[in-house]
Amino acid sequence: MKHKRLGRHGVLVSNICLGTMNFGWHTSEEDSFKIMDRALELGINFFDTADVYGWTKQHGYTEEIIGRWLAQGGGRRDAVVLATKVYNPVERKANLPEVNSDGRSLSAYKIMKHCEGSLKRLQTDRIDLYQMHHIDNDCPWDEAWQSFDTLIKQGKVVYVGSSNFAGWNIATACQEASKRGLLGLVSEQSVYNLDNRMLELEVIPACRHYGLGLIPWSPLAGGILAGALQKQIDGRRAEKDVLKQLESKRVQLEKYETLCKEIGHPPSEVALAWLLHNPVVTAPIVGPRTVEQLESAVRATSIQLEEDTLKQLDAIFPGPGGEAPTAYSW
């Protein structure tokens, strides 16, 4: 496990980020506690969640689980760089319907209110990385940045990040922050993996230019890069949408899993190691359902892929052809 700067910024985070999206609905609270404890033992200090996680249980339920884990003490809170998000609906059973909470936006009202909700559920006095879960094209940056600046001055938020932003959204957000003398975005969290390399066109160049650390979610492409074909041969059941993907990508995945076997590493670990070879990537987000899955992700940090292997991976999963505009023009 290595600890590196989040982009060009001073804070040090582990090069694997613990994603908690499964906590509370796929993973029990007891097992979630075990995963978080083991993460600290392995040197992972970067935890990511969102106010909407909890899904079928209740929006915010995952934050509550993390809050109860932190409340055990033992230095847990000081050992963690804690990230959560704002934008999505957060419907709570105890609350009356409320259009600002039950809808999607980055209004000042929502940012301020939802920050307080997250702080209460997480049982902490600060959010280390507060991320916009999606772009709100209808809300002016004057309003959003004023709200984040207020929270920073109050000591409730340390850094601000984005998630699911386009390259031009990142550029706009950073320029608007700069005009106000603010630090601006420190990170971008987006889907990025061998099978989905669209970020290489404009988002990764924007992150590099503005000094953002890239935090890829779905690094295993929903499981299809985790040895899905072999698991199918072994008789393990897969969801319908995964089976559909397997059939459409069977030729690619056969080549991929064969290559992984040749170099002697599990497909899931190779997929993570490939991401870690990109200097813009700070930490892939892994969402383990078990301690064993977490330990497998950590093993990926010690894998050094040879240049020939990287070329073979490019041949199997070619991506968009480089960065815009040279990827599609002279």
Rank of each mutant, 00 (worst) to 15 (best):
G223Y: 12
Y109W: 11
K113W: 14
A315K: 13
A327M: 04
E64P: 00
S101C: 04
K156V: 00
R299A: 08
A177M: 03
L42P: 00
H277C: 13
K179T: 06
D51F: 10
R76F: 02
S14P: 04
L259F: 04
V286M: 09
A271K: 04
H26P: 00
R77E: 02
L294H: 05
L185R: 09
P325E: 12
G19T: 11
L40P: 12
E41C: 07
V160A: 03
I170C: 11
T150F: 08
V81A: 06
P97Y: 11
T150Y: 10
S28N: 02
V270Y: 05
P318E: 04
K110C: 01
V191T: 15
Q58E: 15
P318I: 02
H59T: 04
G103Y: 03
R8Q: 12
I66F: 09
S163E: 07
E98S: 06
G43K: 07
T290C: 04
L272I: 09
L122F: 01
S101K: 14
E202P: 10
T84K: 09
V280W: 10
L12Y: 08
P318S: 04
V90Q: 15
E64D: 11
Y159C: 03
D195W: 14
L42S: 06
L129K: 04
L214N: 09
L220I: 13
I35G: 03
F23V: 06
R299I: 01
G161S: 04
S178F: 10
K311T: 09
K110S: 02
N95V: 00
L40K: 07
L212R: 10
N193P: 06
E202K: 13
D241P: 01
E30A: 15
Q175W: 13
P288V: 01
H265A: 14
G155K: 05
G287L: 02
K153G: 00
K113F: 06
F47C: 05
E200M: 06
W141Q: 12
T49A: 02
V242F: 01
L220H: 12
I135L: 11
A273V: 07
V191E: 15
G211F: 09
S190F: 12
D142R: 04
M1Y: 08
K153C: 01
F47N: 05
A315W: 00
E176A: 15
A228C: 09
V203D: 07
H277S: 14
E64F: 02
R8P: 00
P205L: 11
D136F: 01
I263L: 08
R8E: 10
G155H: 07
P279G: 09
N193G: 08
E143A: 03
V291N: 09
G43P: 05
F317P: 03
T84E: 07
T20H: 03
L294S: 01
G184A: 07
A83M: 07
Y53N: 11
Q131F: 06
P205H: 12
N193R: 06
G155M: 03
F317M: 03
A228D: 05
G19E: 12
L70T: 02
A297P: 01
N137A: 13
A315D: 14
L96H: 10
V80Y: 13
D37R: 06
K261D: 13
K4H: 05
M132D: 00
L18D: 05
C17A: 15
L96M: 12
Q72P: 02
Q252W: 14
P97S: 11
C115R: 07
G73F: 07
G287W: 03
G181A: 03
Y192A: 00
Y130T: 06
G227C: 06
N196H: 15
L276C: 07
